[in-house]
Structures are given as structure tokens and as C-alpha cells.
Amino acid sequence: MALISFFAAAVVAGTPLLFATLGEILTEKSGNLNLGVEGMMLMGAVVGFQVGIMTQNPYLALIGAMGAGGLGAIIYGFLTITLRANQVVTGLSLTIFGAGFANYMGQKLIGQVVPESMKIFFRPVSLPVLGDIPYIGAIFFRQDPFVYLGYITAIVLGIYLYHTQYGLHVRVVGENPGAADASGVSVSMYKYIHCVVGGALCGLGGAYLSLVYVPAWQENVTAGRGWIAVALVIFAAWNPYKALIGACFFGGLDIVGFRLQAFDLKISQYIINMLPYIVTICVLIIASVRKSKEYGGPKGLGIPYFREER
């Protein structure tokens, strides 16, 4: 039983990571390396929380969170796509800005908790049939609606990227903007749309933390999860389905150190906490040693596109 409750908790811990990772996958697939995930998550977390407290309406809270994340991404997009600023530095600036924004907005929210009506809305629901599957049901299908939304987003994103015409265009834009341009695909438009939708997903990930996971406002509620999401994108090889698995895995690693304390292990939880990063580095190295063209990430990542330069 302990194991099942651990896995179920890992899924919950992985959900904010999942949204942020999916958002960053979408962003990176279109060739934007936005390192401002942490900032967008914080913006989403604080706006979602504020709207939730003001309106007591969970839907408006989520829309607010997505709007805030998307707004961060628009700033990023305008600077990097239209003005061709350096993507790494712009992303870091967005993180600084987002953290400042969240701390500022959250100043008056510290100590406030999520209203009961919304807690009820976000409380775990056992899905019919699926929830009754032994083990699997308890781990995956007796969760809160947000978790289910995460599953759905991952699957929809997978279908979108791999089975639709527009998803194909996203991949072409990210891999080789020159080819996309020559094929008549509008590079800037695709970059903008996917960067903004990606930002909105990051905002949702933040909102999960403040509205469901904690559920109260605390300063720096993301605690570096945005950066883990960036790592997870690599770990998942830019694949939404693998991100689903990766998020659960990283979610598990997030809580395993804490849970293992009960077992009086020889290995410190802090050493175990390094695992996600070490694993990610290994993935990076393997991808580069194999010179893999499929799993190395989009080729056009981080490079602004300018037709006349070709």
C-alpha cells in the first residue's frame, strides 16, 4: 500500500512539471529556447491564485493563469522573434521579471488559502471503470481533475504534433525554418503561436502549485520546478508522451528523498535529489555521442530566422 500511495503522490508531484514540460516542448518544437519557464510558471501561479480568491471561480482562475503565462511568452516572443534578441538571455530576463511580478502580486496574498468551494472543485475524483483497475486505478485514476487535464493535454499535444498537418509544420519550423519558408509556411506566425500557447501551459503548471498542490500562496512557490521542466524536455526527447512518463518519474524523484527518510537509508535524500539532473546530463551526452538526428532536439533551436541571410 505504501508503494501505491507513493506512486499516486508521484503523479501529483509530477503534474505541475508535466504542464510546464508540455508547454516548453511546444515552445522548443517551434525553435524557441525559452528558459523563462520558471518565470511564466510563477506568473501563472500568482494570477491564477489571485483570480481564484477574487472570483471563487475555478475556470476563471485557470484562464487567468494561462493568460499570465501567455503574456510572459508574448514578451519573450516579441523580443526574440520580431526583434531577434538572444534567446537565452531573454529567457533568463523573463525569469527575473516573472519572479518579481509574482512576489510583488503575491505580497498581499501570503498566508491566504484557497477558498473551500474551489478546493472541492479540485478534489480527487475516482474515474468510473478506470479508477477500479487494481493498482493502476489507485495510482492514476483517483486523482484531481487537474491531473486528468494533464493527461489529456499530453495526449492532445502528441496527436497534434505527430498526426496533424499543423503539428508537422511546427516540427518543420523548429528543425529547418528555411525549408518551412520555402514550403510556404509562415515561420514567424508558427513561432509566435506555439511560444504563446506553451507559455499558457507553463502558467497552468504554476497555477496547479498555488491552487491545488500547496494550496495556499507562498513566496517562490515553484522552487525551481521551471528549471526541472527544461531538463525534462531533454529527458523526454521533445516527445509529449515521454514527457508524461518523465513527469511522473521526476515527480517521484521530487518526493522520494523525503519519503525515504522513514526507511533510514544509507544514501542521503539530497544525493537522490541529484538524480534527475544527472540523468538529464546522461541523456544529453548520449544524444551528442550518437550524433542522433532524431532525438537531439530541434535543429533550429535558439537561432533567429532571417530569410535574407540564407
Partner: peptide
């Protein structure tokens, strides 16, 4: 709040 300065930085 000090965070306003952080935003200003951004």
C-alpha cells in the same frame, strides 16, 4: 515590496 525592483530589473 523589494520585488518591485526585481520587476524593474526585468
Amino acid at each position: 515590496p523589494q520585488s518591485a525592483a526585481q520587476m524593474l530589473q526585468g
